[in-house]
């Protein structure tokens, strides 16, 4: 069992026992070796279910938005104690954006920040294990070995190693913010931020011609089945009623899942994520149709940084990028 896991459990236990938090959101063992899943616990007795492993990929911030949307029953005093939550560096930036946008007051959340060098892609783990002749549930005790730059697990009492570079999630390879900035408590040592190309995923597209890009996206947008998983797992998509689902006073986007309407949906979502997307990569991970959504949102992030020197989730005091302007902003409109 890793040290970080112990500490998470200890903190959660203390917080719950003292009644300092309403409940605690963390990760638990998932349906197979390579998937962790979110868990919400109220009882300090349950803290042993909490884990910390390279499979903790979910962004739990989405549950904070749920919490803020809850309406107390009539006549009931609302419980405004904070919610405890385990966050990786990217998830913590998401919470900063929620603070910035006045969706989540700081006193309503207790953030455990964990410096993170990246999490493992469950599919890559599975492939890697299969090569070693190990099935989806053969491995247990997955752990992160920081100093050796690898993930480890055990199968039938034997240690199994996964080289980090081979199984890392794509978004983690491009991450330059390994340390959470806003937190109530931090577990683990600070990690030196790497110098990598954070926009690597869109370079290839940027080099294409207009026609090539149009062709690239055409097939992809056609494939979308509009299951809405991308927006439901996104902590930034917190609208009570999404503009693409709204039918009153007019329907902006038809329910018809054709290329035109799918593209409308994805581009509107991309516009709504400018300067807000913290690149947790959840949308792309959950998409059943393998739509490379990060290639849209990363482009938006790049433009926001290039034009307005703005990066999402770094400074809670700053105004959101579209909620402000500078008189001498770049003007290409004449």
């Amino acid at each position: 069992m890793s040290k970080i896991e112990d500490e998470i459990r200890g903190i959660a236990k203390k917080l719950l026992e003292e009644g300092k938090v309403k409940y605690f959101t963390g990760y638990a063992k998932g349906p197979d070796s390579f998937r962790a899943r979110p868990i919400i616990i109220d009882d300090p007795k349950d803290v042993d279910k909490l884990i910390w492993s390279p499979c903790c990929v979910n962004n739990l911030g989405v549950y904070l938005v749920d919490e803020m949307k809850k309406k107390p029953k009539r006549g009931e005093e609302p419980d405004t104690r904070p919610v405890g939550i385990v966050t990786k560096a990217c998830d913590a930036r998401g919470i900063t954006v929620l603070h910035q946008e006045n969706i989540l007051p700081k006193e309503r959340v207790y953030v455990i920040g964990i410096p993170c060098r990246g999490m493992a892609d469950p599919e890559k783990l599975e492939k890697h294990a299969r090569k070693k002749g190990l099935g989806h549930d053969a491995i247990y005790n997955m752990d992160i070995k920081e100093e050796k730059m690898m993930f480890t697990g055990e199968a039938e009492g034997v240690k199994v190693a996964f080289p980090r570079e081979e199984v890392l999630l794509d978004k983690c390879k491009e991450c330059v913010h390994h340390n959470p900035r806003e937190y109530d408590i931090v577990i683990g040592k600070r990690i030196e931020n790497p110098h990598v190309d954070k926009y690597a995923t869109i370079r290839e597209l940027e080099d294409m011609s207009l026609e090539e890009r149009e062709k690239f996206w055409e097939m992809i947008f056609e494939r979308c089945i509009r299951c809405n998983a991308c927006k439901e797992v996104c902590p930034m998509c917190y609208c009570e009623e999404c503009t693409v689902e709204k039918a009153k006073p007019m329907r902006w986007c038809s329910k018809s899942a054709d290329k035109s309407n799918n593209e409308f949906f994805h581009l509107i979502r991309a516009m709504h994520l400018v300067g807000r997307c913290i690149d947790c990569g959840e949308c792309e991970r959950v998409c059943p149709m393998a739509i490379p959504l990060r290639k849209l949102y990363r482009k938006m992030a790049k433009e926001a940084e290039k034009l307005y020197s703005y990066e999402a989730g770094l400074n809670p005091e700053e105004d959101p990028v579209f909620a402000t302007f500078r008189v001498d902003d770049d003007d290409e409109f004449e």
């Binding site: 593209e263 581009l267 516009m271 433009e303 034009l307």
Partner: peptide, 13 residues
């Protein structure tokens, strides 16, 4: 601001 970025997005797709 908004439309500059929208222009970039349209070009991107």
């Amino acid at each position: 601001r908004r439309l500059t970025v929208l222009g970039k997005l349209l070009e991107h797709v």
